[in-house]
Amino acid sequence: MNLTELKFGQKAIIEKVTDDDLSLKLFEMGLLPGESILLENVAPFGDPIAVLLSESKICIRLQDAASVQIKLIS
């Protein structure tokens, strides 16, 4: 599944980023394979979303979040 399908209260592990243009930027920001991720917030028009990584919070558009592959845990 990808990041846009993550629901509030679910915890997931990032598997990979499929968009080559985005992966470098996301990795640098701390969104990288193996990190856990939580959905924190949704902006007023449903897009972008804010996600919690282990140590920081970043926001990302749905179209970009679609390239982040995740796996649900617990």
Binding site: L22, M29, P48, A50, K57, I58, C59, I60, R61, D64
Partner: peptide, 11 residues
């Protein structure tokens, strides 16, 4: 250029 919006929300 590809456009994206990825930004940190600081505490």
């Amino acid at each position: 250029q590809k456009n994206y919006f990825i930004m940190e929300l600081p505490s």
